[in-house]
Design a protein around this nucleic acid. Structure first.
Lengths: 328, 328
DNA sequence: CTCGGAAATGATATCGATACCATAGTTCGT
DNA sequence: ACGAACTATGGTATCGATATCATTTCCGAG
């Protein structure tokens, strides 16, 4: 920066101003400085800048996983929103473990991010304390927790599970099953199941028919095997709600293998509206989640808070949408 | 840090040592310092640390997109490798534009990362100059470029396209088509097509039959529509190689709609081995790419170089694998 | 008991920017 | 023509750690 200043015949602070608040510098001085920046190929050091200004212009995000197309679009939406507003994304993946989430939070905080985005779920007490001590905006994305830590951007898994089950009821189905299964420590499947069970009870449709075998790692395989188990146990089942589209894919394959007609004999509903679910693919009836929008909203919440926007919203419910296709 | 030092009755530099090189501090002093750290909930400031030590312990990655399950696993593999070795990941998404890649490189470099991971492809001249000036390890992932900028971890799209086409030939197919289409600025589809064309020529099978309509945004829809176009134009086609599994999914759906028996009448091969391609899903014959491994390898290349490992490998070819399933 | 050398610890300068306050130059109203 | 109120620019301290070199402590051989 000194080199640039010398070449432009100004002081370092003026160079800094040209880069950060150009409108405060006289146009011709500005041009001279910018020319010097170009000529020297000067790249400012944000590490030093952050230390000095006490704002890092980075936001950390900690997600369970990027694979399986679950959080990828959320992270992408977040990254883009941040970028548009001059911020950067620091990413960590916790692999569905609350312990490693705690670890990641600690290292993320040591970068002094201006905000933190977490996938909602269990956080250890220590993690919560660290977050509180850090005093930065925190957004939980995906499921909106009953008692958010700070802010939240997402939807209600319970409501979504309830809605899709109600949809199946409305289309005339009466013996509705559920297949899914949750990762340990991941309560999403559980919440969707809860919505399903509630809807059944509300419609007076008897006991839930649920299979949630978590011994199988692949979601698709789990869908296939669990459908088999479910149909063996309750052969008259006329609809199933699958905890994710991947599970639904496995179920659809198994149904075809067994010669069960979909949707005539069995309606299949998924969750997530993954790429393969569309009309030109599986034609799967499913629940569409605003993946990208949740990330973008999280970014906005953090940046608005940072700017000190008054009377701020803390919870953004982006809802969900039932997409009817051929399978139900 | 001063508070911790005072509480432990040592100087700040000793606190720093306890955190960074514990073995250089006498065990009892170390315990005292660690107790103080705990008691005060002290979280070191890596921004200051980075400025002082001139190493940031972060690695930046710039990928075109996270959606579509293409790069997500690579990023995840990278994040994990870095984490295991005490480094963090700074992520940017360029949305398939070389111009915004350039922009992202500039902002990434201003964080003074210890290394940079890029998806291979076109880089602007300015981008290349910035990278050269930065003097940090750079790894290109996915396709191994003919002239890598610095290091590379990936596989050959051309070879993979050639191999899967050869596989189709070996299984008795003679009139093999290609459907795909590339994003502008993304040469992956083009390279795969090149391998396909080479294999055809080597087998003496006449001219390529390719449809690559890029007007359609969704890959799945593109697969469906392009298969339709291809079969209309060359009705006797007995196999197709799709530039990605998503395209193959669309093609499979369209084939079913038209009553074309797969694989009897038409063999379908995809690319990528996405989640839905497996035996419990589509049962798609495809090319498996070492997504996670490429990320992990990229991380290792950077960290090894940082450690100054001598006689280093610069190119890691992780190959690919043809997975035969029911569709071909 | 003494001395050499290793182990443990500390004092101070420094990394590269920005905050804060001061100063010089400019505009304009009366 | 003069001072008020801006605008444009600069000097210096500072952010919170670590590098470097200096100093002290400790240990065992002779």
């Amino acid at each position: 920066m000194q080199d640039v200043a010398r070449l432009a015949g100004v002081s370092t602070i003026t160079v800094s101003r040209v880069l950060r608040q150009p409108e405060k510098v006289k146009p011709e001085t500005r041009d001279r400085v910018q020319a010097a920046v170009q000529a020297l190929g000067y790249v400012p050091d944000l590490i030093a800048g952050s230390l000095s200004s006490r704002e890092s212009r980075q936001v950390a995000a900690i997600v369970s996983t990027l694979a399986g197309s679950i959080f990828a679009s959320t992270v992408e939406g977040l990254a883009q929103t941040l970028r548009e507003q001059g911020h950067q994304l620091l990413l960590g993946t916790s692999e569905y473990s609350a312990a490693s989430e705690e670890q990641l939070i600690a290292t993320a905080l040591s970068r002094r991010p201006d905000g933190l985005v977490l996938t909602s779920g269990d956080h250890t007490p220590r993690a919560r304390r660290m977050l509180a001590d850090a005093g930065i905006p925190v957004v939980e994305v995906w499921d909106i927790p009953e008692a958010p830590f700070d802010m939240a951007a997402g939807f209600s898994n319970v409501e979504a599970g309830r809605a899709i089950t109600q949809f199946l009821v409305e289309t005339g189905r009466r013996r509705i099953g559920f297949i899914g299964g949750q990762h340990e420590g991941d309560q999403r499947g559980r919440l969707r199941h809860q919505g399903y069970a509630t809807a059944l009870k509300e419609a007076g449709l008897g006991e839930p028919r649920s299979i949630a075998d978590s011994t199988i790692v692949s979601m698709v395989e789990r869908g296939a095997r669990n459908l088999a188990m479910l149909m063996d146990r309750w052969p008259d089942t006329d609809a199933i709600f699958c905890a994710s589209d991947s599970v639904a894919l496995g179920a659809l394959s198994e149904a075809r293998r067994r010669g069960i007609a979909v949707p005539e004999r069995l309606a299949v509903a998924g969750f997530g509206d993954f790429e393969f679910a569309g009309d030109f693919g599986l034609g799967l009836t499913t629940v569409r989640i605003p993946g990208r929008a949740m990330g973008a909203a999280a970014g906005r919440l953090i940046l608005d808070r940072k700017r000190g926007a008054p009377g701020m919203v803390k919870i953004v419910d982006l809802g969900f949408e039932i997409v009817r296709r051929g399978s139900a």
